[in-house]
């Protein structure tokens, strides 16, 4: 884990872009500081020896997976599917074009 504060303005901008969030110059400054503080605290983890430790991605560990039988069930009525849509046409969702 990096010991020095890895958060600079460019990193905050890059991460915000990945997360699809716009930040004002002022916000960039604020988050830069706050994220740096949090990461500094988090750096505590450097002290833990985990050389021979397996990661836990799930609290109940390795268990027998639940499978679903392959049978088709009723889907939602199309009206329900589209009821919350900000924009729709016929039975389709409408979104702005990808590039432009």
């Amino acid at each position: 884990m990096p010991d020095t504060n890895p958060i600079d303005k460019k990193t905050v901008e890059h991460v915000a872009r990945l997360a699809r969030i716009n930040l004002s110059a002022q916000e960039i400054g604020l988050y830069k500081k706050q994220l740096a503080d949090i990461l500094e605290y988090i750096n505590k983890l450097n002290k833990v020896d985990v050389k021979n430790t397996l990661p836990t991605s799930h609290p109940m560990g390795k268990i027998k997976n639940v499978f679903r039988k392959d049978s088709a069930k009723k889907s939602l009525p199309v009206e329900d599917v589209l009821r919350n849509a900000p924009n729709k046409k016929d039975s389709l969702f409408v979104v702005p074009k990808i590039i432009g």
């Binding site: 679903r68 392959d70 049978s71 088709a72 069930k73 009723k74 889907s75 939602l76 199309v78 599917v81 589209l82 016929d90 039975s91 389709l92 969702f93």
Partner: peptide, 25 residues
């Protein structure tokens, strides 16, 4: 017969969005 993670049908050529549910949406 059904999708990878939910019970919606995999049939081709159905009315748009008619084979969807909270999971695959």
């Amino acid at each position: 017969e059904s999708k990878a993670f939910c019970g919606c049908s995999t049939k081709f050529g159905l009315e748009p969005n008619s084979s969807t549910c909270p999971v695959c949406l």
